[in-house]
């Protein structure tokens, strides 16, 4: 196992997250406790070495806030739809397994897209093909090819939103050329 040194800048999000978790666990955000948490998180990150997550190095907060709000609204909608289906449709519900090929080949972006679409109305990731970055979704309440198309378009638009937040410049270029076409 080669221990490639990773720069502090790449590791920083992980360390910040660990410090926040430490503070939350003690329910104490005083500077002394946070400093001790920072020391501990550096030690943990050095001792329990994991392959670094490839970050693209950009994060657009202006796109992130509307996306988070939209995500929250979709989570609410998902639960309401599920409640409705469970009570009124029950055993007669129709499903489909849909393949969606994503634009991005970054592990982080594919994972984030998978997480988001697992939580929006009526879809769940069943299988991931990492080499072609294809997600296979199980979709609830799909009865026509038209609805399959709608679902695919929705997944791709969610991926576009995530690319705008934290994708690389190349992926942004792909988005631009798609929008122009």
């Amino acid at each position: 196992m080669s221990r490639r040194r990773i720069s502090l800048r790449q590791e920083l999000p992980l360390l910040v997250w660990l410090v926040i978790v430490w503070g939350a666990l003690w329910q104490d955000f005083s500077p002394g406790n946070l400093l001790f948490g920072a020391l501990l998180s550096v030690a943990v990150a050095r001792l329990f070495y994991l392959p670094p997550v490839e970050l693209s190095g950009r994060f657009n907060i202006l796109h992130a806030i509307p996306f988070a709000l939209m995500f929250l609204a979709k989570v609410v909608m998902a639960s309401m739809q599920l409640l409705f289906l469970a009570v009124w449709r029950g055993p007669r519900v129709k499903n489909a397994v849909v393949a969606v090929t994503l634009r991005s080949h970054q592990d982080l972006l594919v994972t984030a897209t998978g997480h988001v679409i697992s939580l929006i109305p009526g879809s769940l990731v069943v299988e991931v093909d990492r080499s072609t970055s294809t997600l296979y979704l199980h979709a609830l309440n799909i009865s026509s090819p038209q609805e399959v198309e709608n679902l695919k378009n929705e997944v791709l638009s969610i991926e576009a939103g995530l690319i705008r937040i934290m994708g690389t410049r190349d992926e942004l270029e792909i988005l631009r050329t798609e929008a122009a076409a």
């Binding site: 029950g90 499903n95 939580l119 769940l124 069943v126």
Partner: peptide, 17 residues
């Protein structure tokens, strides 16, 4: 009420969150 495992899984995840 859902008929198979995969649709039950939708029921188990989304309302939890």
């Amino acid at each position: 009420r859902f008929p198979d495992l995969l649709s039950r899984m939708h029921a188990a995840t989304k309302p939890q969150v």
